[in-house]
């Protein structure tokens, strides 16, 4: 539980951080809240020779409205998300989910940027970003680019981030007023990652599902967009048959590992249940 030796850097601007990353290469890692990186370092599963702490960069924090989008700075903590009335009103699913992440201590330090950049299939925020069709702003030695969250995740701990790039902001289109949402997460205890979790954002019209996105956490190497499952409920009243069809379409794309949370068979089974429960709860909230 003792990390290996490393040098600590605290740049004051994105430019400096990018330059440090470029100069130091593979041996350097950005440090945000540290609540994924430091545990890995303590187990010596990660042994970066240089930590580039992003806390000194003022521009990376904050939540602002930009037309029909909300832009969140990468270094905004889960606690700050929870404290924001704007998020509570426009993106309430972020509040519901942030409260299911770890415990208050972790939420005070852990950042949204770190959570989505980490690439751990157990992280909860990436599935939301897929559901909300967010995009990430990446800044690197070759300038800035926007990448859709739906294109970002490539494998466990393997993302579209290029060497030397930093994720600086998350831009989320505001879902229509009256949308229904739910994040259903089964976990063994406070502080546990999901055994299975499902996020749903939908709209209803005339008692039927008008639009729907379903995403899944910790049921594959990456967060999943369950398109077939969503299609199975669009146009339905979310009757039993539709729910079951959604669950089985979602289960068809799940490939979780067996672990101490249970064998893969169990995780797939409850993954389907989370989908059904999230759909029902989201529909009950839609107007």
């Amino acid at each position: 539980m003792i990390p290996g030796p490393f040098d600590y850097h605290r740049p004051a601007s994105v430019g400096d951080a990018v330059k440090l990353l470029a100069d130091l290469g593979d041996e350097a890692r950005p440090l945000a809240g540290g609540h994924s990186l430091l545990p890995m370092m303590k187990l010596r599963l990660a042994t970066p020779a240089h930590l580039i702490d992003l806390h000194g960069i003022a521009g990376l924090k904050g939540i602002c409205r930009d037309g029909d989008r909300i832009v969140i700075g990468a270094m905004t903590t889960q606690a700050e998300l929870l404290a924001s009335a704007e998020i509570g009103e426009r993106l309430p699913i972020l509040h519901e989910t942030a409260l299911l992440i770890a415990d208050p201590q972790v939420r005070y330090r852990g950042t949204l940027g770190g959570n989505v950049a980490n690439g751990d299939p157990g992280n909860d925020m990436p599935a939301l970003m897929l559901a909300l069709d967010a995009s990430y702003r990446l800044e690197g030695p070759n300038g800035a680019r926007e990448v859709a969250a739906r294109e970002f995740y490539q494998g466990a701990y393997f993302t579209a981030l290029e060497p030397g790039e930093i994720l600086t902001g998350i831009s989320i289109p505001v879902p229509p007023a009256g949308h229904g949402y739910a994040y259903e997460k089964l976990k063994r205890k406070v502080g546990d990652y999901a055994t299975a979790a499902a996020g749903v954002v939908l709209t209803m019209a005339g008692g039927k599902v008008a639009s729907c996105v379903i995403t899944l956490t910790n049921l594959h190497e990456t967060p999943l967009l369950a398109t077939d499952a969503a299609n199975a409920v669009i146009g339905t009243t979310l009757d039993d048959a539709a729910l079951k069809a959604a669950a089985s379409a979602a289960r068809a794309i799940m490939q979780p590992a067996s672990d101490a949370r249970g064998p893969a068979e169990y995780r797939i089974h409850v993954g389907g249940i989370m989908v059904m429960r999230a759909l029902q709860r989201a529909a009950s909230r839609a107007s």
């Binding site: 415990d103 063994r188 205890k189 406070v190 502080g191 546990d192 990652y193 672990d259 101490a260």
Partner: peptide, 16 residues
């Protein structure tokens, strides 16, 4: 050992 840390070795909190 597959349950060698408090992530997997069940140590209930006040919530559970």
């Amino acid at each position: 050992v597959v349950t060698g840390s408090f992530m997997d070795f069940f140590m209930p909190t006040a919530v559970e």
